[in-house]
C-alpha cells in the first residue's frame, strides 16, 4: 500500500514551494490590504527552504519524523514573523504523529491533516471564524475525516479537503479578523480574503494533486 512517507513529503513540499512561488505576489498584495504585506514572501521563502532541504541526498534516507523536525527548524529559522511559528508547529506536530505511526498509509491522510491543523491551532490559538488560515485548515480536515469515514480513497479524501479549504478561504471574505495585525482594522478587514487561508488552500490543493496521480516509480521523485 502506498505510504505517506518521506519521498511523498519531499514531493509535497516541492509542489507547495512551486505553488506558493507562483502566488507570491498575489499573497503579498492580499496581505498588504489587511496586514503588513509580507505573507507571500514569508510563505514562499519558508517552503522554498524546506524544499531545498528535501533535495539533499541525505534527507531522503530520513524517517518522516526526523525529516519533519528538520523541516520545522529550517522553516522557522528562515521566516520568523507570524507564519514561521505556525507552520513550524504544524510540522512538529506531524513529526509527533510519525513517532507513533512510522508507517502511514495514504488512506490515513486525515491523521496527517489533523496533526498539521492541531499544530497550527495550538500555536495560533485562533478560533474558527477569526479570519485566519484555520478557516481553511479546519473545514479541510472535517471534509477529509468525513470522506475517510465513508471509506473514500486517499485521492478522494484529498480532493474533498482541497475543495473545503478553497471554500473556507473564500468564506474569510465575510469575516472580521480578530487575530494578528489585521485584527486592529476591525470592520475594515471585511470583504478581503485572508492571505493565510488562501495560502493554506494552495497547500491543500497540492495534497490533492499529488494523491490524484499515481506515485512515480523509484528514482523518479
Amino acid at each position: 500500500m502506498e505510504q505517506l512517507d518521506t519521498p511523498f513529503l519531499i514531493r509535497l513540499f516541492r509542489a507547495v514551494a512551486l505553488q506558493l512561488e507562483e502566488h507570491r505576489e498575489q499573497l503579498c498584495a492580499l496581505d498588504g490590504e489587511i496586514g503588513d504585506g509580507d505573507h507571500g514572501t514569508s510563505m514562499a521563502n519558508g517552503f522554498a527552504a524546506v524544499a531545498r532541504l528535501g533535495q539533499r541526498p541525505e534527507t531522503r534516507a530520513l524517517a518522516p519524523a526526523a525529516f519533519l523536525r528538520q523541516a520545522a527548524s529550517v522553516f522557522l529559522g528562515d521566516v520568523g514573523a507570524t507564519v514561521g511559528p505556525l507552520y513550524a508547529s504544524a510540522l512538529l506536530q506531524a513529526a509527533k504523529l510519525y513517532d507513533t505511526r512510522p508507517d502511514l498509509p495514504v488512506e490515513e491522510l486525515a491523521l496527517l491533516l489533523q496533526a498539521l491543523t492541531d499544530g497550527i491551532a495550538a500555536r495560533g490559538k485562533a478560533d474558527p471564524g477569526d479570519k485566519t488560515m484555520l478557516d481553511a485548515w479546519l473545514p479541510a480536515l472535517s471534509a477529509a475525516q468525513q470522506a475517510r469515514g465513508e471509506g473514500a480513497l486517499a485521492a478522494d479524501q484529498a480532493r474533498a479537503a482541497a475543495i473545503a479549504a478553497e471554500e473556507g478561504a473564500q468564506a474569510t471574505i465575510t469575516m472580521i479578523a480578530s487575530r494578528g495585525r489585521a485584527a486592529r482594522l476591525n470592520e475594515r478587514s471585511l470583504g478581503k480574503l485572508d492571505p493565510g487561508a488562501v495560502s493554506a488552500s494552495l497547500i491543500l490543493s497540492c495534497f490533492a494533486e499529488l494523491l490524484a496521480s499515481p506515485a512515480p516509480g523509484p528514482g523518479e521523485a
Binding site: 503588513d36 509580507d38 522557522l76 529559522g77 528562515d78 520568523g80 507570524t82
Partner: peptide, 12 residues
C-alpha cells in the same frame, strides 16, 4: 531584531 515590522524567529 527581526525583519522590518516582522518578529524575529525563536532561535535568535
Amino acid at each position: 531584531v527581526g525583519n522590518v515590522f516582522a518578529s524575529p524567529p525563536p532561535d535568535r
